[in-house]
Write a protein that binds this DNA or RNA. Structure first.
Lengths: 208, 208
DNA sequence: CCCGGCATCAGCCAAAAGGCGGAGAGACCA
DNA sequence: TGGTCTCTCCGCCTTTTGGCTGATGCCGGG
């Protein structure tokens, strides 16, 4: 049996080096390449077609992890993409799964969990950390709390600190409509004021 | 010459393991212990009185990095504390320096920079990444934009989505005073509304 | 073809937030 | 002692926001 080949994508050298050290302890797993950005990852996968791509979502400048996943999937369906990141925001999870990620593991996971995720991904199985799975269930159970595209768009601008008037101009809708959307958003997020909505959006929904 | 002993504090195993691998390549630096939380760090430093403590600021549950630095400094002035973290938010930097950190290095720094920081800290010198130094200068140049302790406290609660009334109750001050503080905060942050203030606070000031 | 969800808009009213000027007490420093 | 900060508080007025009710057009599934 050939070992599982892995491509690491993370903008932090320490993380890559730590991951390599960890994975190196497993005889059936080999790190064949590393990349510090989405761009590098796309290039690296040409040279080293790995079985599993472990990817961070937040990567400083340039292409973000989600975009990188999409392009990787487009370029070739050979390798499975495993998200390996710090945060478990609802929005990130949904977007990653949507982009075609096979698994979602948090950086504070135990080594065994990480190994299991890599092996699972290599076999085409979905693996995710408990908190991540729990969030996904949450969403499935309460579809009433899922924002519509328009609401999400508005919320995103809201976190930029715009007033109702400004939101209206930006989205080419009347202030009245802005208010209606806001009322719906508040209900779905479980808040009463725009201030709280912004706080929730940035922290929970990951709208940075 | 004895090698420099280092204690690593970070809640992510991958980061600790990567850092250990990196520092291990330097003959004059030895990692003598690791800790995954502020509490563990305080205990570990008793067993292994290291020359330098490398500490992350964001550490999930429990004591945060700033608090850990303060307690470490109280417990013993022997070791130098070097902050090693992902973000360079103004608030974090100021608070860390205030708590007694000797240096501030970002996780995306080059290995040489990390080594230099460890050696510097061991010799009692201050070392910080360029972006960090730049932010500090910024603050020195514009002291008008630095929040007072009370203002920072209020802003922190503001990002929780509280109303003026709630802020007043929480801080045992009148709503009028809350408004006064807010006006000052808005001026310092360069915004006009509480929504924008929250956005800036969470993103720029790192008040998560 | 009707119903439900979505997006759009209106008007009314109460509450909250924000702008402005003024002011006193305590701390700290030159 | 005088000047400067910081924190505290007041009143008055305008703007913004949020709650409520109701309505229209569009689209897609049953």
């Amino acid at each position: 049996m050939k070992p599982i080949s892995v491509l690491l994508v993370d903008d932090h050298l320490v993380v890559r080096s730590g991951l390599k050290a960890l994975l190196g302890t497993q005889p059936d797993i080999t790190v064949v390449a590393e990349a510090a950005s989405g761009e590098e990852a796309l290039a690296a996968v040409q040279q080293h077609p790995a079985d599993v791509v472990m990817m961070d979502l937040a990567m400083g400048e340039g292409m973000d992890g989600i975009e990188a996943i999409k392009r990787l999937r487009l370029a070739s369906k050979q390798q499975a993409v495993l998200v390996f990141t710090t945060y478990d925001s609802d929005a990130d999870i949904v977007r990653a799964v949507d982009a075609g990620a096979m698994g979602y593991v948090l950086k504070d996971a135990a080594p065994e969990e990480i190994f299991a995720a890599v092996r699972g991904a290599a076999q085409g199985k979905s693996v995710m950390s408990a908190p991540v799975a729990s969030k996904l269930f949450q969403q499935l159970r309460n579809p009433d709390e899922v924002l519509t595209p328009r609401e999400a768009e508005l919320l995103s601008l809201l976190t930029r600190g715009l007033s109702n008037r400004e939101l209206g101009k930006r989205l080419f809708i009347s202030e009245a409509t802005v208010k209606t959307h806001l009322a719906h958003i508040y209900a779905k997020l479980g808040v009463e004021t725009r201030a709280a909505a912004i706080a929730v959006a940035i922290r929970r929904e990951g709208m940075r």
